[in-house]
Design a protein around this nucleic acid. Structure first.
Ligand code: ZN
Ligand code: ZN
Ligand code: ZN
Ligand code: ZN
Lengths: 123, 123
DNA sequence: TCATATTTTGACAACCGTTTTCGTTTTCGT
DNA sequence: ACGAAAACGAAAACGGTTGTCAAAATATGA
């Protein structure tokens, strides 16, 4: 883990919501870091490959990242206004997805589930 | 509904899976149509705005479209190999998402759910 | 320590899907 | 048939992301 990658991880950990690569780049530069945008992308790629951060796509196709508390399988409920996110578990959903796969003859079933809403603070 | 838009809808209806704008453009040109790529994008935008087609983002951020049988809320199980998709309903999931929202004080809760796997034909 | 091999970095250009622009063509109501 | 309004397509612009490559940092080992 290089110093720059650690800096990116740290910057991401400071937020409870999902952030884009460019957001993080702006944050780091604002703090005085001389990091390059390319390096931020590379760090996020590595962190997501290793499962340390979660990635998802916004409606307009931008990748956003989050340093979650757990590395085990989970989902999120994300605020549409402030982008803060809460980690949630859904045994119900896990089972449902598996059942659906089996029912339709699909193997190697995975799923993506995200919940959106407006959080209490933003209401 | 203009003729070009109708052509895009028709082209999309010919497939059971999700297709990208560029895929459809290639299909239509291959059939001899003189349609432009811009028009394909515009038609898909209109169709998705009106709820006639579903849109989702692939892992690499590309938008893909599908002409579903029903316009009411539903989800899909998508084959990772041939991209064919089956429409599925999940009362269980609907309830779970709503409960999660309420539990964490979120309002106006929506959700995205997609299931992926390898279909029977591709196994 | 010093020299050398390896990895990481960042400026910049390239890439690719998508949107905007704008002049032309088609459609539609009268 | 006429003019207004909408749709169209080619090309340029856009924005996020990835590739390139030379310089800088770091690790290795004599
Ligand atoms: Zn997470
Ligand atoms: Zn799950
Ligand atoms: Zn559908
Ligand atoms: Zn649902």
């Amino acid at each position: 883990m290089s110093a720059r990658r650690e800096a990116v991880r740290q910057a991401l950990s400071g937020y409870s919501g999902f952030r884009s690569a460019q957001d993080l780049y702006t944050d780091l530069r604002a703090e005085g870091s001389k990091i390059g945008l390319t390096t931020v992308y590379r760090a996020l790629q590595a962190l997501s490959d290793s499962g340390e951060v979660d990635v998802l796509r916004t409606d307009d196709g931008e990748a956003v990242y989050r340093a979650c508390d757990t590395e085990s399988h989970h989902h999120h409920i994300v605020c549409r206004v402030c982008a803060t996110a809460v980690e949630i578990e859904g045994p119900t959903v896990e089972k449902w997805a598996a059942e659906m796969g089996a029912k339709h003859g699909f193997s190697g079933v995975t799923h993506t589930v995200e919940v959106f809403g407006t959080c209490a603070d933003c209401s």
